[in-house]
């Protein structure tokens, strides 16, 4: 340890710290490291975790306050105060987003008439503004998916493949329950997939996004927003728009069941009367 070169000095300094830390120094060092680690963990946690009282100081917008009033009148029984849900009555609405509210309330499914396998579509209880206000309240309460603004169908003139693509996606994703003709179908124990002849593009989009009642959620990972609009294009332009060739009556689109009924009710009936007539002429 006699060399006095700069390197030797650095080595000495280094060596001294390494080789001979005093007991007190060791204790202080450990305490400092411990504090630093705790500060880091706590800091990361506070940086990423939502604050426990974040909602408290957030002011609801006017629309949301209106919505909250409506909610407290009509929905609170089953969904509870703060929409956190009531065991055995209704699910939590935190995080369902305004898309779910606008679908459920806008189609009259909510408020529900009674607890049953599935809420029926009926005349909406709330008008459009009230529905939007309710949606705004739920949205500000817990966030969640929203129905995008603007047109939800594709322009076939600009994008001619949209219809065929939508049809393929429809048959792969929707027809299992709603049927190829969109007439709706039965599920187990009184549940059902409703007919697709009534809903608006917004409602179809909202249903795909939020999976209401017994429908699965088709999030943007399963069906991109563009694919969703293609499906809506197919539903509105091919299924709802009754331009089916092949006669005046499509027999409801229920497949061979109603066709079999028709052959007896119409065909056999006409011909039995014809045979009564012909045999009566003697």
């Amino acid at each position: 340890m006699t060399s006095d070169t700069p390197a030797g000095r650095r080595f000495r300094v280094f060596n001294r710290r390494r080789s001979a830390p005093s007991r007190a120094r060791r204790r202080v060092g450990a305490a400092v490291r411990m504090l630093a680690a705790l500060a880091l963990a706590g800091g990361v946690y506070t940086a990423f975790a939502p604050g426990a009282f974040a909602q408290d100081d957030k002011q609801l917008s006017t629309a949301a306050q209106e919505g909250q009033a409506l909610f407290n009148n009509s929905c609170i029984t089953c969904h509870g105060p703060q929409a956190q849900g009531v065991e055995g009555r209704g699910p939590s609405l935190v995080g369902v987003g305004s898309a779910a509210v606008e679908f459920q309330v806008g189609t009259g499914r909510m408020p529900m008439t009674r607890q049953e396998a599935q809420a029926e579509q009926k005349r909406p209880v709330f008008d459009e503004t009230q529905t939007k206000q309710l949606g705004q309240y739920i949205q500000e309460l817990g966030g969640g998916p929203q129905i995008p603004a603007g047109s939800l169908t594709q322009d076939i003139k600009q994008n001619p493949e949209a219809l065929a693509n939508g049809g393929e996606l429809f048959r792969l994703n929707c027809a299992q329950c709603h049927g190829n003709v969109g007439a709706g179908g039965a599920l187990s124990s009184g549940k059902f997939a409703p007919s697709l002849h009534d809903p608006s593009p917004q409602q179809i989009y909202g249903a795909m996004l939020t999976g209401p009642q017994n429908m699965p959620v088709f999030g943007d990972n399963e069906l991109t927003p563009e694919q969703k609009t293609e499906i809506i294009t197919y539903i509105t332009q091919q299924i709802q728009d009754d331009k089916d060739p092949g006669g005046l009556f499509n027999l409801g689109g229920y497949g061979p069941a109603t066709e079999g009924l028709a052959i007896f009710v119409v065909g056999i009936t006409i011909l039995v009367f014809a045979s009564l007539w012909i045999a009566g002429k003697s």
């Binding site: 049809g167 393929e168 048959r171 792969l172 027809a175 299992q176 329950c177 709603h178 049927g179 190829n180 003709v181 007439a183 709706g184 179908g185 039965a186 997939a193 091919q238 299924i239 089916d244 060739p245 092949g246 006669g247 005046l248 009556f249 499509n250 027999l251 689109g253 229920y254 497949g255 061979p256 069941a257 066709e259 028709a262 052959i263 119409v266 065909g267």
Partner: peptide, 24 residues
């Protein structure tokens, strides 16, 4: 019957795919 009532609208059923089965 053929002129008034539509029967078997195959264009709505799409081509056969083992993965695509319609309800009803």
């Amino acid at each position: 019957l053929a002129g008034l009532f539509q029967i078997n609208p195959i264009w709505l059923f799409g081509p056969y795919l083992a993965s695509a089965v319609s309800s009803a």
